[in-house]
Write a protein that binds this DNA or RNA. Sequence first.
DNA 1: AACCTTTACATAGACTGTCAAGGGAAGTGG
DNA 2: CCACTTCCCTTGACAGTCTATGTAAAGGTT
Lengths: 117, 117
Amino acid sequence: MASDGHLFLQGTLEVLILKTLSWGPMHGYGIANWLGERTDGELDIEEGSLYPALHRMERRGWIEAEWQITDKNRRAKYYQLTRDGRKRLRDDAKAWSRFASAVAEVLDESKAPSWAT
Amino acid sequence: MASDGHLFLQGTLEVLILKTLSWGPMHGYGIANWLGERTDGELDIEEGSLYPALHRMERRGWIEAEWQITDKNRRAKYYQLTRDGRKRLRDDAKAWSRFASAVAEVLDESKAPSWAT
DNA sequence: AACCTTTACATAGACTGTCAAGGGAAGTGG
DNA sequence: CCACTTCCCTTGACAGTCTATGTAAAGGTT
């Protein structure tokens, strides 16, 4: 899980989804699993966060959906990036990168009062 | 500013404040400025986010306040970390670090489909 | 049948950030 | 002395995203 009571995910979930979909169409359940595995369980996306996120991203035209049958023979809504979605992914990934650098700049352990270590 | 409509800050603001205060007591205005300068303007904390954050952190016992006079001869509420605040800082900094690594693992550019670059 | 897995959705609620507005006190330039 | 700017704090309305929790249904397995 993403740890205790932290809302770090806030604002980041969408980029993560976009990136996941950049590898090809996938359904919600698959996206969550992929993210979880990829990050060794550190990123545990709740269904209640995931599906609403997918819905609003579709509404905004970043992804499109299509019902299909999975290899496990179940109905699933496959999402894929649109042109806008790809652009969005590029922009957001850069924005995240800048933001993360800034935070790292502040939190950098090497620049800590001794007691804080 | 932290860029367009991103809520990346969500959940991160408190660690940033804690870390800033780890250098010594400081007032709100000073905290915001310090963060802004330290990150070349990338982190622009709104007063409407900052002060409420300080208030709730005080309510939770992570920081304590004391009115004093600044070197510019103005009244200001100086905040400093409590024992709980220091612990919180350590824990949250670690949590952030893990989270950021996980996100980086996913967004890593070197692992991108060619069109996404 | 009973049960687990896969897949999707919805509602309620809490939390936290933005926006916008306001106020007061100390300098500074005229 | 007045106007203006800088410093510093506060709060309320509002919006957005996440969590918690529960529902649903179909396929596979035993």
